[in-house]
Structures are given as C-alpha cells and as structure tokens.
Design a binder for these strands. Structure first.
Lengths: 147, 147
DNA sequence: TCTATTTCGGACAAAATTATCTTTATTTAA
DNA sequence: TTAAATAAAGATAATTTTGTCCGAAATAGA
C-alpha cells in the first residue's frame, strides 16, 4: 500500500506531532528509536517533509524536529503521503495505465472507484492531531513490543 | 497498490479468459503482445497461476494458456491477487505492523477499516467473467494505444 | 572561540523487484 | 522419427527501493 519510506514518514510525523503538542522538540535518534526505524533512512524522509514545511528542523545541540502547534490539526495524512509517495495510490490506475479514466477505463477502473474514493476521503480527512491524540491516551501504538 | 507482477497477472488472466470464452487457447507470445508486458517475466507470473490451477497451460505447437469455461465466473480478482501478491493488501496493517488489530490498533487502523473492507469486498466480488466481457464489448482496454 | 551535538548532503551498499537470456522438456504434426 | 513450436526452469542482469556511512554545515553552550 504505502512504501516503507511513507510508513516511516507517517509514524515519525505522528510522533513528532505528539511531542510538539507537549512542547517538546525531538531528535532524529529518538524518533528512530520510538518508531523503530533505520535512523539515516528516516532522516531522508524527514528531510522531504521539512522541505515542504510539514515539519520544522533545527540543527545543533538541542536541535531536532517539531511541528508548529497551530499546524498539527490542519496537516492531513494526505499531505504526508503525497509528499513521499505522490498521488498514485489514490489517483493512479490500479493496472498501471496512465490513460485510464472514466470515459476510457481499464477493466477494473469502475470496480475501483469506490475503493479509491474511500481511501482518498480518509487521507484527506484524517489530521495529524487526531492520530497523535489517539497515541497520547494510549489507544494506539507506534512500536511493536518485542516478543 | 499492486506489484507489476500482479498487474501483469490480472491483465493476462482477463485476456486469457476472454479468449477462452471464445474457445481459443493463446500463446505466451500473443498474451505479452496483447497486454504489452515483458514476455519472460509474464511467463513466471502465469506459472504461478498455473500451479494453483487458475489457468491451464500446455506445451508444444498449438500449446498455450486457457481457463476452463466453467471456472471463468467463479475465479475472482481476489484469487489472482492473493496468488501473486498475497493477502497483505487487504489484510495487512497499513503501517506494516504485524500485530495490529482492532483491540491493539496502530494509529491509522480504525481509519483504514472502511478502505480495506471496500477493497476486500471488491476483490472478492469481481469475477474474471465480468472483466472479460467488459473487454469483449469494447468497453474497456488492456493495452495503451501508442501516442 | 572551541567543542560537542545535531541535521544535511552525497556517495555507497544491500536487498527486493522487475526483466532478460539460454537451455531444457514437452508436444504436435509432418 | 525428426523438426518445429511452445512452456518451464534456471542463471543472470538491470532497476528501484531500502538502508548505511561519512564528512560538511549549523548551532548551542562552555
């Protein structure tokens, strides 16, 4: 569904959002530890998000990543996914045709309309804020416990 | 969404189904030409489908691939996707956790329920027969026209 | 100003996916 | 029985994605 890069991006964003709500800036090292992702690879992903101002980064000691409090509830899952994986998931043709559309559809185009709409709606309506608060109250998790 | 292998598998299956409805067996070469896919790679995919009896293959001159007429309307998109990509698309966690479920959900689990259900329903309810007939009457296409 | 800490940037490496090539096995039909 | 046509199988290659490493740049604090 999503690329690994996008998975890390989503997880990291949620974690950064939560910390930002609590007034904390977090380092890459801590993020990688908390979402259980490869550090350097995660850095590249965060860089992408920083470049389009979804997150803010600062160098130096006590540096790290944060998200402006007033942005947390306007940043949608769609923004993050789009920044990393592009729009192919919810716009692209399921069979890979780039000329597929309602008037000249591939065999499964019509079948997919509902799925795509449902996905798109979800991504557009889910804010980082909701996701972060679910995590805050312990309803959800970002890291699998070792077995 | 789907892997390339799966895309080719779906396209090929639809094409074979259509030809089988019309009583024709088709060669790999023709399939690859008609769905515009790499021949050898497509062969591997078809082999996977043949091994679980979704399609039938025969060697030798006048050999090729076909699907039993009486199976065409009971083979669902889900069968093909499952054979090639496994069930991760509609069963797996969107963030890649393998312990994610309703009682211990990842942050986007609940958000994804509808999408996954919609996808699953669609894959389970779409038969090769419908897809093949849509193609037969020229409503849909399997190969992009060159520009 | 110096040092330690952190992100940034680029090169590199490993792994997975996609694609090709070559040989082998099977089958049909002459 | 031989030749031609076809799928099967396996080795190899190319590409993409994922992951690592290291030095550079920035910044805070001593």
């Amino acid at each position: 569904m999503f690329s690994k890069a996008c998975e890390y991006g989503i997880k990291a964003s949620i974690y950064i959002a939560l910390q930002s709500i609590q007034g904390e800036r977090v380092s890459l090292k801590k993020i990688a530890r908390e979402i259980n992702s490869p550090e350097a690879f995660t850095a590249k992903v965060l860089l992408q998000l920083a470049k389009i101002d979804i997150i803010k980064s600062s160098k130096g000691p006590s540096g790290g990543f944060e998200i402006s409090k007033d942005k947390i509830d306007t940043i949608m899952l769609a923004d993050i996914v789009f920044a990393i994986d592009g729009n192919s998931i919810y716009e692209g043709c399921a069979l890979g045709f780039d000329t597929c559309n309602a008037t000249k559809p591939c065999p499964i185009h019509d079948k997919f309309v509902n799925v795509r709409e449902e996905l798109k709606k979800m991504l557009l309506n889910t804010s980082l804020y909701e996701l972060a608060t679910g995590l805050e109250v312990g309803l959800t998790f970002l890291k699998q416990r070792k077995s």
